[in-house]
Amino acid sequence: MDGQGMHGPDPVTRIESDGIVVTVSDHGAEMQSLMTPDGRELLWHGDPQVWSGRSPILFPIVGRAPDDRVAIDGQGGEMAQHGFARRMTFDRIKAEPTRVVHSLTDNMATHDAYPRPFALTVTHAVSGATLAVTAVVANTGRAMMPFCLGFHPAFLWPLPGAEGQAHRITLDNGAEPALARLTNGLLDDTRHPSPFTGGELRPDPAMFDADAMIFPEGAGQGLRFDAPDASDAPSLRFTFENLPNLALWQKPGAPFLCIEPWHGMAARKGAGPEIADRPGAITLAPGESARFRWSVTIG
Rank of each mutant, 00 (worst) to 15 (best):
D188A: 14
V21D: 06
H111L: 10
W44E: 04
A80L: 14
H152Q: 03
G272K: 07
T239N: 11
R237Q: 12
T183I: 11
H263A: 08
A65Y: 05
E30T: 02
L246N: 07
S194V: 12
P48S: 06
M31R: 13
P195Q: 03
M265I: 09
G222H: 02
A212N: 06
M31A: 15
A210R: 13
V122W: 05
G264E: 12
M31F: 00
Q250L: 01
E30Q: 12
I259K: 10
G3Y: 05
L243R: 11
G185Q: 05
F208V: 14
I93Q: 02
Q75V: 15
A143S: 11
L223A: 15
M145H: 01
P273L: 02
P158N: 10
P11F: 02
D38I: 12
E163D: 15
D204M: 10
F196C: 09
L243C: 06
E260I: 04
Y114H: 09
S52I: 10
R191E: 14
G280E: 01
E176D: 14
L248D: 06
G74W: 00
G77K: 04
D91L: 12
G222A: 00
A71H: 04
M35F: 02
H7Y: 14
T197E: 13
R202K: 09
R14C: 03
R87N: 12
L236M: 10
D226M: 08
V21K: 13
P193W: 11
L42V: 06
T297S: 15
A233R: 01
M88S: 15
H27K: 11
D26E: 11
D38W: 13
A138G: 01
D172V: 13
I282K: 15
D73A: 13
F215C: 08
L201N: 09
A266W: 02
E241G: 07
I93R: 04
A71C: 08
Q32H: 02
D211Y: 07
D188S: 14
W157P: 06
A65E: 03
F118Q: 12
E78Y: 15
H102I: 03
F90E: 03
A166G: 13
V21G: 06
Q49I: 03
G272V: 13
P115W: 02
A80F: 11
K251R: 15
E16P: 01
T134Y: 01
Q75Y: 14
P160I: 08
N245R: 05
L156T: 11
T89H: 11
D204G: 04
D112P: 05
P158R: 08
Q75I: 14
R224G: 00
D2Y: 07
F118N: 09
T105R: 14
G272W: 09
F292Q: 00
T239M: 00
S235N: 05
L179E: 15
P244R: 09
L201F: 12
A180V: 01
A29V: 06
V70L: 02
P228S: 09
W44D: 00
M6R: 15
L187F: 11
V21A: 10
A125G: 07
Q165I: 04
T197C: 07
